[in-house]
């Protein structure tokens, strides 16, 4: 079974993003919400790390959070956008959810 990891912190503010990437296992999923969506944007210090993780892990970002921060159009290729219903689906599709607060 696989996990859903949520990250709600900017990678520049705390280590939630790095710590999550260290612990995420192949086949699991990461959903970036709130300030976490900055971690999904191109040209950032963490972008290479996230792109590498995406070989094994599906990465999603909450569309409303991306848009409210003006980050639409800046996302790393392959990051999938979901709405709140999509968030719910990700929760039900995975065995458990870990919030990297």
């Amino acid at each position: 079974m696989t996990m859903l990891h949520t990250i709600n912190k900017s990678p520049f503010e705390r280590n939630a993003f790095d710590s999550c990437l260290t612990h995420v296992k192949k086949g699991s999923a990461i959903l970036l919400i709130e300030d976490g969506v900055y971690g999904a944007t191109q040209g950032t210090a963490g972008a290479t790390k996230l792109a590498a993780a995406m070989k094994d892990v599906a990465v999603y970002a909450l569309q409303a959070d991306v848009e409210m921060r003006g980050m639409q159009g800046r996302l790393i290729d392959g990051v999938k956008l979901v709405d709140y219903g999509g968030f719910v689906d990700l929760v039900t599709q995975h065995q458990n959810t870990q919030a990297w607060l």
């Binding site: 079974m1 696989t2 996990m3 260290t22 612990h23 995420v24 296992k25 699991s28 065995q95 458990n96 959810t97 870990q98 919030a99 990297w100 607060l101």
Partner: peptide, 18 residues
């Protein structure tokens, strides 16, 4: 190790983080 910790997380029914 971090890898073992990742395995532990995945083996759980409920994960609460604070």
């Amino acid at each position: 190790t971090a890898k073992e910790m990742a395995d532990l997380m995945e083996s759980q029914d409920v994960v609460m983080s604070f």
